[in-house]
């Protein structure tokens, strides 16, 4: 008969067995150890720089392959705007070399670039189906011609520069404004011009004086000086005076409305002489 094997576990086996029955150790074996092994493996693999670079290259290559699929390519640009000048300018300003992947297009940057153009009020840039980059432009509408020391320029209602103008004669339909700082107050200028509607044929220009108040320039070198505040009301009063007493038709150089409570008329030299003569004559007649 063979001698029976000792059924007793060795001290080591017994301890091992107890260790395996420890819940915390089993939890570690189940979760902690795999995580540890994976982390260790990855970190050992990644400790070599060549392998890291190769991986980055592979990823970049894969990314490029996806990006360059024909579904994502943009082939042409459509500019939706009224004027061909703006379209030309937009095409000029957007540095896009077609065909290009839509992943490479920064639409916000493009939109900001388009909105940099003076004549553009706002723009939207989107990629449409079929690989079309659509730029929709809302133009600025010029409402006045502003003469500055550097030349003529068209401005919109907000006073924003639209485009330079070569000659005043090109846009006779728009009123002329002059003076430094006039562009910033275009809205007020337009109201004043509207108030001056009864004398439209005689209206020449609106001049900003000292960047604080307006002068209305009429033909025959007549000037209506308006106050800083409430220029429109003052203009309306001038128009009322004109309507009632035919003020502007008289031989007056300037109507000084800078102080609305004390308007002053400046007569021309001839009128002044005439006035003096008339008064003297009346005086003498009275004396006799």
């Amino acid at each position: 008969m063979r001698p029976m094997k000792d059924p007793a576990p060795s001290r080591m086996a017994y301890r091992m067995n107890r260790l395996m029955l420890t819940p915390r150790f089993r939890l570690f074996l189940r979760y902690g150890l795999p995580v540890l092994l994976i982390v260790a493996g990855v970190s050992i693999w990644a400790s070599d720089e060549a392998r890291r670079d190769a991986l980055a290259e592979r990823v970049a290559e894969l990314r490029r392959q996806v990006e360059e699929r024909p579904e994502f390519m943009v082939r042409m640009m459509v500019v939706e705007t009224g004027s061909p000048e703006i379209e030309a300018e937009v095409r000029d300003i957007l540095p896009v070399d077609f065909p290009v992947s839509s992943f490479d297009l920064e639409l916000d940057t493009l939109r900001e670039a388009v909105e940099e153009i003076d004549a553009v009020a706002s723009a939207s840039v989107q990629i449409r189906g079929g690989g079309v980059l659509a730029v929709t432009v809302v133009e600025r509408v010029p409402v006045a011609v502003w003469r500055r020391a550097t030349g003529l320029v068209l401005v919109d209602a907000e006073g924003h520069r639209v485009q330079p103008l070569d000659a005043r004669a090109d846009r006779l339909d728009l009123p002329l404004i002059l003076g430094a700082g006039a562009g910033a107050e275009v809205a007020e200028a337009l109201e004043i011009i509207e108030a001056a509607a009864p004398v439209t044929e005689r209206f020449r220009a609106l001049r900003r004086m000292g960047e604080r108040r307006w002068d209305v320039l009429l033909d025959r070198d007549q000037i209506i000086m308006l106050p800083e505040d409430d220029a429109v009301t003052a203009m309306k009063r001038v128009m009322a005076l004109d309507h009632a007493q035919d003020l502007l038709a008289r031989d007056i150089v300037a109507i000084d409305f800078r102080n609305p409570r004390r308007p002053v008329l400046r007569l021309s030299d001839a009128a002044m002489q005439e006035n003096l003569t008339t008064r003297t004559r009346v005086y003498e007649a009275v004396v006799e």
Binding site: A8, P9, Y14, N17, R18, L21, T22
Partner: peptide
């Protein structure tokens, strides 16, 4: 001690608890 180890280990195995 060996006998005790045998018995304890077998009982632990049955109970599946340490």
């Amino acid at each position: 001690e060996r006998a005790i180890r045998t018995a304890v280990q077998a009982a632990q195995k049955m109970a599946n608890v340490r």
